[in-house]
Design a protein around this nucleic acid. Sequence first.
DNA 1: ACTTATGTGTAGCTTATACTACACATTATT
DNA 2: AATAATGTGTAGTATAAGCTACACATAAGT
Lengths: 122, 122
Amino acid sequence: MTLPAKTNFGDYVRDTRERLKSKDRSFSLRQVAQRVGIQPTYLSKLERGELPPPSEETAKRIAVDLGLDADVLLAMSGKVSSELRAIICQRPQLFSKLIRQLKDLPDDAVLNIVREVTDGDW
Amino acid sequence: MTLPAKTNFGDYVRDTRERLKSKDRSFSLRQVAQRVGIQPTYLSKLERGELPPPSEETAKRIAVDLGLDADVLLAMSGKVSSELRAIICQRPQLFSKLIRQLKDLPDDAVLNIVREVTDGDW
DNA sequence: ACTTATGTGTAGCTTATACTACACATTATT
DNA sequence: AATAATGTGTAGTATAAGCTACACATAAGT
């Protein structure tokens, strides 16, 4: 699972699409736009950063088409999916506190927590 | 720490403000609006749910004035603070996975995690 | 050569977001 | 009784979000 280094929404989409396109002609800007349900001009501007990232729904459809992780692509839009937002908003104090605490913990420490929960030690 | 049962933004603000007002005249709708930096008419409509919750900034200022937890008030607006969003967006996969996993865990289980992290067992 | 497909520049548009400003009736305060 | 303060109805406004539509030059495929 390769995470995008320090790139933005546009570059990430463009790079991914070009990579796919080199193996499969159907990943032209126009065809992707068509499948995603947006105008080619719009996708072009998104990829070049001429316009800010699209709506959550559009970002998700782009992610699906390009086989990307929607959470990651949304993060590059500075957004958190409505699904996650809803979870947080149900118990805002609990989650707010937890997230702030985990902010400065290294990845592997957070992963340990994830694993512990997965294993159902709770 | 009393959490609002199942109420919405408007009712929560109104109830809180009325409660404060009964002890302190300066919590009239007009004076609160003045301190918060919005029009009284706007606050009135917010409290009665005639208009949707305000911007994050305005919600935060209301929270400060009324002594409420900003995260909770934002949650009633269906929002997550930009600060928390930024934390999540820095490590979207990690946090997304964790949040989804914690979704159905009872409060005390999540609190255990919070405490463990607080104690620095990591 | 010709058609077809590709990416992009320019110019818009529609809907939501986030409020303000004025006027008024009702209720307190002095 | 007069003044001041309170909450609210109505009508707007300004800005941003999230796109579309047309036209065109270039490149690729047949």
